[in-house]
């Protein structure tokens, strides 16, 4: 039985990223950091509620860190593989270059999204254990926060792919991600920052998907033209 190259590439990339040391940060350290930050907040007096629910704290930490980590992880990975001639033995085989990039994108996107889900789940659990009164409509707000975080991860991952393809220097990739990618990744968070209505939230999600797709198309175009 023949195995689809696309499925195989995606599975391989998922395994590779899931086992990477950077992912350990996302699987373990990120939730721990958020939890630590929460416990460092001033303790509420008797009968008072903590200033911020744990789940909100998690969402804040994730939105600020997860995207950057995803972008740097994927960008540095592509530059490293280019410099080690990994693609020389890959692209001579019957698999499209675009598939290679999409596999990386999806692998990092899924890994980081799962890490975020774990973190948010941890936040809700801690809040429940501590008996924190969760805000009204928490489920909706949590889902919306999650949607924004996922959109940030999608844009960041696509930016990481694009800069990874365009540059041959790890340092340049990191700088580009920090200075350019970060600004693009703000797009899905704009409704929250600007306190815009629900309509804007959905519009921004669509725009975010478009930005991520555009970045991936550019990356694919550039990768197909790249000479190794």
């Amino acid at each position: 039985m023949s195995i689809s190259p696309v499925r195989m590439m995606l599975r391989d990339e998922l395994v590779g990223f899931a086992k990477s040391k950077v992912m350990v940060v996302l699987w373990v350290v990120l939730p721990l950091l958020a939890a630590l930050g929460y416990f460092l907040l001033p303790t509420p007096g008797a009968g008072q509620q903590p200033p911020v629910p744990m789940v909100t704290m998690m969402a804040l930490v994730l939105s600020s860190l997860a995207g950057t980590i995803a972008a740097v992880m994927i960008g540095v990975d592509i530059v490293g593989e280019k410099s080690r001639n990994v693609y020389d033995i890959l692209i001579i085989r019957p698999i499209s270059r675009t598939t290679i990039l999409w596999s990386k994108f999806l692998a990092v996107f899924l890994c980081v999204t799962i890490a975020c889900l774990i973190s948010l789940g941890l936040g809700i659990t801690i809040d429940l254990i501590r008996g924190v009164a969760l805000p009204a409509g928490l489920a909706t707000e949590t889902l919306k926060s999650l949607g924004s975080v996922i959109a940030v991860i999608a844009i960041s991952s696509s930016v990481g792919v694009l800069f990874g393809v365009l540059s041959n220097s790890t340092l340049v990739v990191v700088i580009l991600i920090l200075y350019v990618g970060q600004n693009l990744a703000i797009v899905p968070m704009l409704p929250a920052y600007l306190n815009l209505g629900d309509d804007w939230y959905w519009i921004m999600l669509v725009i975010s998907a478009g930005v991520a797709l555009g970045m991936m198309l550019l990356a694919g175009l550039s990768f197909r033209r790249t000479e190794f």
Binding site: I3, P5, M8, M9, D12, G16, K19, S20, E81, R84, N85, V86, D88, I89, L90, I92, R93, P94, I95
Partner: peptide, 30 residues
């Protein structure tokens, strides 16, 4: 692509892979 087997100068593999995993994936892709 089926006709050619290519060894580049300083061939590289994904570092997290084992020898078998690297060869298996490349063989399946071929």
């Amino acid at each position: 692509q089926d006709v050619i087997g290519f060894l580049p100068q300083n061939a590289g593999f994904q570092q997290w892979r084992t020898s078998e995993s690297a060869l298996r994936s490349l063989g399946l892709l071929s």
